[in-house]
Write a protein that binds this DNA or RNA. Structure first.
Lengths: 150, 150
DNA sequence: TTAACAAATGCGAGTAATTTGCATTTAAAT
DNA sequence: ATTTAAATGCAAATTACTCGCATTTGTTAA
C-alpha cells in the first residue's frame, strides 16, 4: 500500500468517525466497519451481505440489524425496497439515485432521475393529510437484456 | 338487496371470473373471493388483512399467500411496499396510484402522479442493461398533520 | 489517569411472516 | 361419468428479524 492510499483510507475513516460523532454515536469499531462497507460498495446491501463483507472484523448479526435501523433513522442510510425478501440499505449521500431491477435474475442498474424532488413537492402540495415528506421510494422493475434473450 | 344491486354484483363477479379464465386459472371460490376483496377495498392489503375480510368464506392462509404471489406474477395485483413488516398488494387496474405513508402512525393517502410513465421511459432509454420495464414502485414517506402536531 | 456510567455488544431465545410437503379435494377436459 | 392436473388445507419448517439480559466498552468528569 502506498503512502497516499494509506492517508486516503485514514482520511476516509476520519470522515466516517465524524459522521458517527455528529449523530451522537459512540465511535465503535463495529459501526466504523459497517460504514466502511456502505461507503465502499454503492449497492443495496441487507444485513446478511454486510455481515459477509465484515468477515474478518466479525460483528454480531443482531448488532448489524440494530445499527442499520438506527443509521436509517438518523438519515445516514436510506432504505431501498427491491421487492426481495430482505430489507436493503444504501449510503444516503449526495449520490442519490434509484434502481432498475431485473425480475428474473435480480441484476441491478442505477438510475438517475432528477425530477423526483419536484414530484415530491407536487405530492405534498396536493395532499390533504400530510405536512411533511421525508423520503420516497422509486424503483423500476423489468427484464434485463441478458434475461430477455432466453 | 335490490335487483339492480344483485345484477351489478353478479356482473362484477363475472368480470372477476373472466380475469381468472384469461389467466389460465381454475375458477375457485377462494380465488373469486380474494379478487372480490381487492376490487372492493382499493387499499394496500397483506395476506392477514385479506384473511380478515374473508371471515365467512374461510380460505387457508397458505392458499392466500400462494394466490397473492401468483396474482402478482400474472399482473393481476401490484405489490406495494410501504416499509411495514408485511407485503401488501393492490388491484393492478386502471386506477393506478401511489401512496403517502406516515412514518409515525402508518396512515396512508393516495397520490396520483401522472408523470411516472414518462420517467419510466426516460429510465429505460438511459439504461445500458435493460430492454423492458414492467412495473415500478413510487411511495412517499413522511409525517401526517395529526402526528406532526404532537 | 482513573473511576463511573450510559451506551453498545454478543449471545441465545423468541417472534412473526411466509413457505413447503403432502394427503385430499375439486374444477374442467374427455 | 371418468379422469387428471391443479388447487387446497393442514401442520411443520424456514427465514428475517427482534428482544432480554449479562457483559463489555467508549466517553465524561473528577
Amino acid at each position: 500500500m502506498k503512502k497516499g492510499d494509506k492517508n486516503n483510507s485514514k482520511n476516509k475513516d476520519e470522515a466516517l468517525v465524524g459522521v458517527l460523532r455528529n449523530n451522537g454515536y459512540k465511535v465503535t469499531q463495529g459501526r466504523i466497519s459497517i460504514l466502511e462497507v456502505f461507503s465502499k460498495y454503492h449497492i443495496p446491501l441487507n444485513a446478511e451481505s454486510v455481515s459477509g463483507y465484515l468477515k474478518n472484523k466479525r460483528v454480531d448479526v443482531a448488532t448489524i440489524y440494530r445499527t442499520l435501523k438506527s443509521f436509517e433513522e438518523k438519515g445516514i442510510l436510506r432504505r431501498v425496497d427491491l421487492r426481495n425478501d430482505s430489507v436493503c440499505f444504501e449510503m444516503n449521500d449526495s449520490h442519490h439515485h434509484h434502481h432498475l431491477v431485473c425480475k428474473k435474475c435480480g441484476d441491478i442498474e442505477d438510475v438517475d432521475v432528477c425530477e423526483i424532488d419536484r414530484l415530491s413537492k407536487i405530492a405534498l402540495k396536493n395532499s390533504l393529510k400530510f405536512k411533511l415528506i421525508i423520503d420516497h421510494s422509486l424503483e423500476f422493475f423489468g427484464v434485463c437484456k441478458t434475461c430477455n434473450k432466453v
